[in-house]
């Protein structure tokens, strides 16, 4: 009896399997064709608090260097000092080495103005690792640190 039963069950299961695979030809593929064929850029589909590259908004940076001190792997470099011409403290360099950054978020927590923060960008692939050092003060600019208005 199991002889005929085997035949019947194999015919039934193969038939059922074929209907399932054939129906898959009409189903939507799950694939997201990542870099270039997505309906909206993948960056915009990420959650708002995603820890991507660090970004620095230099016009509200107070130059306090708290982020530099908080960074456990020293990937933030801030050069600041007294400028003789302006007669006040200026920042001349603000660099973040993204190849070292581990996206821990310890630098964003002490920042008094929220000048250093995460973005949703994450595509760091490059031919030269040096390009991952992001400079936020370019062309020898001198940025006067931000001061909160007194009340």
């Amino acid at each position: 009896m199991s002889y005929l039963g085997n035949i019947v069950s194999s015919v039934q299961t193969v038939f059922e399997g074929l209907t399932i695979t054939f129906s898959h030809l009409f189903r939507e593929p799950m694939t997201i064709q990542y870099p270039d064929r997505t309906p909206i850029p993948v960056k915009d589909t990420l959650p708002l608090r995603y820890r991507g590259f660090l970004d620095v908004q230099t016009d509200i940076c107070t130059g306090c260097t708290l982020c530099q001190k908080a960074c456990p792997i020293d990937c933030i470099l801030i050069e600041a000092g007294k400028d003789p011409e302006l007669g006040q403290r200026v920042m001349t360099r603000f660099a973040v080495d993204l190849s070292k950054c581990m996206y821990c978020g310890l630098c964003t927590e002490p920042c008094p103005t929220g000048a250093i923060r995460f973005t949703r960008e994450f595509e760091a692939a490059t031919y030269d690792v040096k390009t991952l050092v992001r400079e936020y003060i370019l062309n020898g600019e001198k940025i006067v640190p931000y001061k909160a208005p007194k009340k």
């Binding site: 399932i20 054939f22 129906s23 009409f26 189903r27 939507e28």
Partner: peptide, 23 residues
């Protein structure tokens, strides 16, 4: 019956349908 079963599978799985084979 084969095509009826295919239709049933699609309905049962509540999958999104895409008839275009080139997508």
């Amino acid at each position: 019956y084969f095509f009826y079963r295919v239709y049933w599978q699609l309905k049962f799985s509540k999958a999104k349908i895409r008839m275009n084979p080139f997508s």
